[in-house]
Design a protein around this nucleic acid. Structure first.
Lengths: 180, 180, 180, 180
DNA sequence: GATGAATGAGTGTTCATTCAT
DNA sequence: CATGAATGAACACTCATTCAT
């Protein structure tokens, strides 16, 4: 699995031939097929594991900051999210760019859904602070996509923006969008 | 080129074999290689042309609405952008999901740069309306990415949000983000 | 062996992978190779055992009918032969259609030889009833092959001929061929 | 095609790998797939061609001997059939032993059907010469299988019987079976 | 003696690319 | 300039066989 993740991160879906993965893992090609029915199953499992790890660590972050006031907690979460994504940009790229062919990822969706639910609760609890005409579902979709994609593009494209600034801007984007 | 665009839109990068493109174009496979050094060059050119067409038509829209006050012009541009993307979702998907392997797209960047420049001018001309601490370059990157990716995801993923509402939300996102 | 016979009868030579046979037998694949040098040895042994069982049961039939007059005994033997073949058409098919690659079968030949000898004795004892010019060895080969192949094809191809009729026709074929 | 026939005759279905066929043909493996969709298509076409050639030449023989009286014509046909089979025993073996996996052969059936029809006509025209109780369809199946399989086994197994004797015995078998 | 994870040569097949015509 | 037959490296995958435990 580690070898597969490594090859996948370095060479992308197409470049990651089963033989190359086996070689990187230091095992025979046949051994791969003792544990996975086919190549896609390997890729899916690698990406699932990647998504799981992200989710687990983000969960930890959420729990650790739940007690804090919303602005602090939110900022901490954004900070953690970007930091986590930065840890394995190679896999992130594969996930974002070649995952579509493997069908939508339950795991990655689960992560997004968890965060979305969190924000939904926040919106409902504090609705007096926000625009009255807010279409909650639409706003949630917009925010999830915007924050998710921006974090990812930030990590993959490395624009000349510092990490702290990026967190601030994302926070600004969210708050500016929601408030009246 | 038209044939290549058609095949690419319908079958994606992998499904678009050079033979299939040649057949769709009604020419011999050999002729393809008289004009393109390899398959990727074909794909790049198709996507470049696609980006150019988008840019041209958005340019027209810009010129047509330059006279209008900013809020109206901006909304019209967002509306036009989404509408244009919707016209060829197939190519758009190829561009977004499989193009990255082909290196960053000069042309698609050019489009983004044009819009970015436009907004930069707007920001400088009206800086008194916005946050004082605004880091213009960071803000432009954020906005370009956010608006671009959101428009694209909206077209490709078809979330349950009406076209008009989407335009409104994007406008809200931009304005909320920029204003003090 | 039973497991191998079962798998072989159900899935043919190619479908009977060594792992499948081991699994059907409820033993490890390694154990197979403690007792057989390779896959073909397993197949040969299964088919040998199959041929042996056929021979044994046909022997019993021979003994049981030796006392009867020739026409009755012969017909009983033909009847028994077809009935025995019908009992395991799966293995029979493997034997006839994929065995040849495994070299001629000593065992299956032994069966044929036993029957041939029986008929040879019959011919010698009753030579006055038959064609004078009969080349005994040629006739025996012809009869053994014809009766054997016809019985097998009858079982495997199921032509629209009743069992009793089939026995009658075979008897007719033999008698018509031998008599003056 | 010739190369494929050669390899097939020499090494059987499994031994005839596509690469081996391509090499024997002196062409790249890719070229094979310009003309055949897959391996089985190659094998089927080789065997079809083989069956066609047999049929054509047997047809010629039929026409050439139609004028002769039945006994002479029949004997000539048997002689021709064995002689033709002898010309390519390798392919014949493949056809007989591995054809089943490729589905029944239309072509080989067509040949058998043609001969069967011929004999059916003969039986109807001369029914007074034969057993009264003859079940024509059963008899035809028996004769077709017996004569076909015996000819094939004769060619493949080379029993110690001369060619002329074999023809005589087959004729005897047929006549003895049919006559009253 | 039993095990089954490990093996890798081999399979059928694809497709971007070339080059003689 | 157009052609398309020819190419072969590369791919995903299988399975009979081995051998350390």
């Amino acid at each position: 699995m580690d070898a597969a993740a490594r090859v996948l991160a370095e060479r992308g879906y197409e470049g990651a031939s089963t033989n190359r993965i086996a070689q990187a893992a230091g095992v025979g090609i046949g051994s791969l097929y003792q544990y996975f029915p086919n190549k896609d199953a390997i890729v899916v499992m690698v990406l699932d594991r990647f998504a799981d790890r992200l989710a687990d660590r983000l969960d930890a972050q959420i729990e650790a900051t739940m007690a804090e006031p919303w602005p602090v907690a939110g900022r901490a979460l954004l900070d953690a999210q970007i930091r986590l994504l930065e840890e394995d940009a190679g896999l992130l790229r594969v996930m974002v760019e070649q995952a579509p062919r493997l069908g939508p990822f339950d795991k990655s969706l689960a992560l997004q859904r968890r965060l979305t639910d969190l924000v939904r609760v926040y919106l409902l609890l504090n609705h007096e602070e926000f625009r009255e005409d807010l279409d909650v579902e639409a706003a949630l979709w917009i925010l999830a996509e915007a924050v998710g994609m921006l974090s990812i593009r930030y990590v993959l494209d490395r624009p000349p923006i510092s990490h702290e600034r990026m967190v601030d801007e994302l926070a600004e984007l969210i708050i500016g969008y929601l408030r009246a």
